[in-house]
Design a protein around this nucleic acid. Structure first.
Lengths: 345, 345
DNA sequence: AACGTTTTCTTAACCGGTAAAGTCCCTATC
DNA sequence: GATAGGGACTTTACCGGTTAAGAAAACGTT
């Protein structure tokens, strides 16, 4: 890429116009002391007239801040397109970055290893000032890598997975427990869970919590399946769960995202089962989608936008050395809609 | 942001280790002539041993390439989260960028003006080597702005909107016509279209094409509504279309995205209308979602991933001065599923 | 052997900023 | 009236690369 910007106003031009040195302009634009109000104003005036803004590349190279935050996501492209989660998360991140005139460097990767390599390259190349790490799995290599690099990051995931990195996370265990308790309170004794990707740490956490809740409530039946988060997988899982004889199949199913819940809804209809009379469905990551189906989907609602914003804010905290440190974001809350009800006797 | 990378291997270290000058290292790493095979190999060896890679910031500043492409999207954050389109488009873009070891700088903006300003800042600050422009509206200020800056871009939108910029686009008019013809062929004489944001150029294009097709086929009724692409808006629009007396309401509805079509499906159910017996529905931007509903949604399928990839490839073409130039991508094709059928008599 | 060419590599000047150290001048202090 | 102390700027040395111009060695030619 070798195309050249047409106009090239540099700090030198501004300095000349304001009748000062480059250094003075730099001081003014970084709001540092050592300039009279008059000169300061004169400099800004000159910059305005020339339409100049500091070149971020040069600024970065010269060793001050880096106004870019990295985000790498490692999931198959097709799934990303469908899952509302990430776009919403990103938009939350952006809403905070924008306040710091910071940009987001995004890359979809194929593997965690690629991600590690990329972070290293970005960091050493001073392309980014920090990063947001998502989708932690067990024994994730990223914690160690980041530690070694000394790069400021915020890890999105439970502290048990993120190896001491500053983290923000949702309390999935509590949320799963609440979901199961709610269904049990409605009278369900046979409950299934259609989980996400088995490799992901929070899938494991939810699985464990589900098992514990099932045991604590002495449920008559508790199934768990892991999927790849796709609607197809959700449909397959639902179909296989519901093909058992009526007395031996779940009367309620919890899904790890809303796409799979929508798929489940459709499978139930296709199998001639009424929702919620014959089977109750409960989605996760409540998006607009849950209000568009018929019946509407009960869901564990979660402010994903706010989650992203919180992650970004926390990252800035890490970079400046202040800030809140690790903390959970509000636990998803149950939003009952039309897809859950007591099981028919 | 002032954190410092822990290790700092620079070109100087590599040069010292290989026993050559900085310049020689630079030549080697840019595959330029003027070095013997032996030295070249010695330099690469040294770099490998030290784990060095050129600092992109410095490289950019020194005036060669810029390995970042900008993408700004101006839509309300909430909608972005839901629309599968963008994430899928982005993943397509990435798939091409990655081959050029290029990254994507993403920013969600609030207005087109903000977008223009951002592009200018990015370009003049040499943050990006080019940009992908999306969501063109009529009399879009971006064409002029980009022209003035001399920044390489690819515009995603019909040439009638993009003011002479190199463009890639889908032939919406043809697709709309095909959709209407298909429904007419099934026997529908009263057809409605629930469109996207009125400000967007392609919404206008589709609207015009719809009107023309309706006239050409001498339909008995043709309605059009514009929305904000949200499911709620889709539901509202559908509800208002279907409340008319049976003989005076559309028997088929075309939607501008799949979210609204899903919402429409749900509204039909809520109003006690059977799909497709009482009303046929046709979605746009076919995503997985269309296969998850019950009945499944007929849609105008479109390879969004490939669209993104094509846009990125075209951008590289613009930057290098070669490449294909403006061209349409394959027109969306009709994929009939369960939501369209002849109207019941 | 002298001389023009290449090939191979070095030097040094940028790119557009930042930041530490230095200069200059004005004022307060004893 | 000499000196110390600041405030207001300027100088200058980087940051980590690229690149044009220069120099030294190797080569071919007559």
């Amino acid at each position: 890429m070798t195309a050249q910007p047409a106009s090239r106003v540099t700090i030198k031009d501004v300095a000349a116009r304001a009748g000062v040195s480059k250094g003075a302009v730099s001081l003014a634009f970084n709001h540092k002391p050592g300039l009279s109000e008059a000169t300061r104003e004169r400099i800004f005036q000159a910059a305005r007239e020339l339409g100049w803004a500091p070149n971020l590349t040069a600024r970065t190279l010269a060793g001050s801040r880096v106004d870019v935050v990295g985000l790498t996501i490692c999931r198959p492209a097709r799934l990303l397109g469908l899952e509302p989660f990430y776009m919403e998360f990103i938009s939350g991140v952006e809403s905070v970055l924008i306040e710091h005139s910071c940009s987001l460097l995004l890359r979809l990767t194929r593997s965690v290893e690629e991600e590690v390599g990329l972070h290293e390259a970005w960091w050493r190349g001073r392309q980014i000032g920090g990063a947001i790490l998502v989708d932690f799995r067990q024994d994730d290599p990223r914690a160690a890598s980041v530690e070694r690099l000394g790069m400021p990051v915020v890890a999105v995931g439970h502290p048990s997975l993120t190896g001491g990195l500053t983290s923000v996370w949702t309390d999935d265990a509590t949320a799963v427990t609440e979901a199961v308790r709610y269904l049990a309170a409605l009278g369900h004794r046979r409950i299934a869970r259609v989980g996400g990707a088995a490799a992901l740490g929070h899938t494991v956490a939810r699985g464990t919590a589900f098992d514990e809740a099932a045991r604590a409530l002495a449920l008559a039946g508790a199934w768990q399946v892991t999927t790849d988060y796709s609607g197809e997988a959700g449909a397959r899982a639902t179909r296989s769960l519901l093909t058992a004889p009526p007395d031996d199949r779940p009367t309620a199913i919890v899904y790890d995202n809303d796409i799979m819940a929508v798929a489940g809804l459709s499978v139930a209809a296709e199998m001639g089962l009424r929702v919620p009379a014959d089977v109750s469905l409960l989605a996760w990551d409540d998006s607009q989608l849950c209000r568009l189906t018929h019946p509407t989907l009960s869901a564990m609602s979660h402010d994903v936008h706010g989650f992203g914003a919180d992650a970004a804010r926390t990252l800035f905290g890490v970079i400046t050395g202040e800030g809140p440190g690790s903390h959970p974001v509000p636990t998803p809350v149950l939003t009952p809609r039309g897809s859950t009800a007591p099981p028919s006797p």
